[in-house]
Design a protein around this nucleic acid. Sequence first.
DNA 1: TTGATTTCCATATTTTCCCATGCTATACCT
DNA 2: AGGTATAGCATGGGAAAATATGGAAATCAA
Lengths: 172, 172
Amino acid sequence: MRRFRGEAENKVDGKGRVSIPAPFRRVLEEGDPDWSDGFNPNFVLVYGRRNNKCLEGYSLKSMNDVDDLVSRLPRYSKEREILERFLNSQSIYAQVDENGRIVLPPKLRQIAKITSKAMFVGMGEKFQIWEPDSYQKDMKLMEQRLSENNLEEEIYSLLDDREKTLKRYEES
Amino acid sequence: MRRFRGEAENKVDGKGRVSIPAPFRRVLEEGDPDWSDGFNPNFVLVYGRRNNKCLEGYSLKSMNDVDDLVSRLPRYSKEREILERFLNSQSIYAQVDENGRIVLPPKLRQIAKITSKAMFVGMGEKFQIWEPDSYQKDMKLMEQRLSENNLEEEIYSLLDDREKTLKRYEES
DNA sequence: TTGATTTCCATATTTTCCCATGCTATACCT
DNA sequence: AGGTATAGCATGGGAAAATATGGAAATCAA
């Protein structure tokens, strides 16, 4: 399965329309069970998470997986109601149009403070949509935290010892 | 199958009429076996749930699913009697009209304390109708519970570590 | 009859759809 | 290699359709 990679800054017009970066569209197409050549993929936009600082896009497939997990919990259980509330009320379907664009509803633009430009950020199984300045700030913050605490080395070591770590997790 | 997603606040007029959010109508149409293009879907409104704080709308299909689950419970068991009582006596059929609206009978409006506005909340296989202020309060409560029970982590792992979470569920 | 409910019509606003334009990268041809 | 068609991409604008909402007429019920 293809992954969301890279960054792209696109314009948002008065109607709230933005182009989805073409490479992201390819991933969305692959992740929409109903998609076929010549048509446009649907996907899910999640808002209200991550402290309302950005929006997140998930392919239908990965969202379906999540929904399946939740629907295995007992119907009407507290836990399920809470999860359902957050996953379903704070997300909408979005459909890519003929020109590769989506419309960001006013509410979502407001939540992420998006006005005339939107930064698309690949995150592997999902992508994020940021107001460009907010994104820069967030990126700076991350870098700062990394270097201040000398975490850089530690984080990358997670990658190197992946299999060992995995085993450790499984054993526990 | 499409799911109920997102939130929308609509006006309720003196006669109790409210617009069903268009995206929700699409789900109801899909979930009504008798629906065909150009017609209006029927569905079910349940009003005895969640301590009478909101109403719940089910597509005909998802209501059937619920009924099937109930009928699998032991006949005359306490649980089955309770569920049957609530789901059957505390619910009505509702029919979307030509303009995409339904009429909320006075009784139901009173139960959910709905007067001039109604908040529609997507919950996956069902949706809820709240008095907007009550909904805000309930949402705050849920957020609190999220952080208290460390469900926040759960949500992130649902969204991000799908495979690991899947394994955990399968094992349990 | 009279109050309530349903059906029908009207409309402002939003959203969707369709077409057009530069621009860029790629394919193709000689 | 050089030049030229071709297709895809990001963007803009206007026409058309859909949405949310209000109100009037018609129907029903007590």
